[in-house]
Nucleic acid binder design. Structure first.
Lengths: 177, 177
DNA sequence: CATTACTTTCAGTTCTTCCTGAAACTCTCA
DNA sequence: TGAGAGTTTCAGGAAGAACTGAAAGTAATG
């Protein structure tokens, strides 16, 4: 631990801790729980798959917390568990390809946030369509407009998430403005 | 309250309440606080600007709560206050154009969520760039890749939010897949 | 089948965020 | 300038989300 002249491993360790901590704060601002974001950051920058115990030790969190958030990350498709032959423990590794990460997040947010919203609006529009009055017509039109916008956004997300080409963003950039 | 044959106003009222309640739940799932989303839903579907007291009565919330969330919505650019001549009270009306709503949200999320993330990553990358070791190089490259992705996404958001044309989404849809 | 290694669950606790209500403040008008 | 109308602030309380730690569950091994 004190053999190298500039202790590069120590510096790297510091930089990584910084990344993990900050990514947690960011995730928090994004409405993702802090610990989940930190575990993700940890695994993204891990040189090799990590076990639950390693994650616990590294972040100083409880077993229950580590387990739950690891499962959650798996369900988002952001990490996967790997098994080593001759080892009963489960290890986790992150999807490191940024575009695939983005697709996974898009897919999940669509499923969890956009689709339910669309369902709700369809319901409301159906209810108000049958009421006859100028006020009801205005209400119905306003909600229907929002609904139709969301439906379009939803299919854009669907296509983006399905897409293999990670060049969509640069391409979009070229065509805008 | 009981003069019309099918009580259309009552039905409309029910549909609107449903919309407000559900939009609150959705907003919640989107990481926006429930009350703020409900006030927004209320104003979007209001036939005329509403005062703080009307919002309070309608949603059965306290003055402090109403005031704070109205200010927050104003700061997001999703509603604006209007003054009626001969009336000292402040009234609020929502931006009803869906595309403008979307731009406002994009602009704010970019400012509050994406920009800070980019700052953090730039910082981390700068720190790790100078460390010399294979592990550090791998770390640095991984973070730099994420950073560069975010920077691209950021400028796409910037251009979309600035754009006047609400036809970007249908257009994108046409070109995908 | 008993032991050991590991994973999952969950009741209770802690931490955070949100909301209330009342007091303080600001502005306008006479 | 003071009375009334309206708005803002904020300490304390309520609600909700996340975390802990230990016990229960599961599965491989000898």
């Amino acid at each position: 631990m004190s053999d190298a002249s500039v202790d590069p491993a120590g510096e790297l360790h510091t930089a990584r801790d910084e990344f993990v901590a900050q990514w947690g704060a960011i995730g928090n601002a994004w409405g993702i729980n802090r610990t989940m974001a930190q575990i993700h950051a940890l695994l993204i920058t891990a040189p090799a798959p990590m076990s639950t115990d390693e994650v616990m030790d590294d972040l100083k969190i409880s077993r229950g917390n580590a387990n739950g958030n690891l499962r959650e990350l798996v369900s988002w498709g952001l990490i996967r568990s790997v098994l080593r032959r001759g080892d009963r423990k489960e290890y986790f590794e992150a999807e490191k390809d940024v575009w695939k990460m983005f697709c996974a997040i898009t897919r999940e947010r669509r499923r969890r946030e956009v689709s339910p919203a669309i369902d709700v609006l369809r319901n409301v529009v159906a209810r108000s369509a049958s009421i006859e009055s100028p006020a009801a017509a205005a209400f119905n039109e306003q909600v229907a407009t929002i609904l139709s916008f969301l439906e379009t956004a939803d299919s854009v997300m669907e296509k983006v998430a399905r897409s293999e080409q990670n060049s969509i963003l640069p391409w979009a950039l070229k065509f805008l403005k």
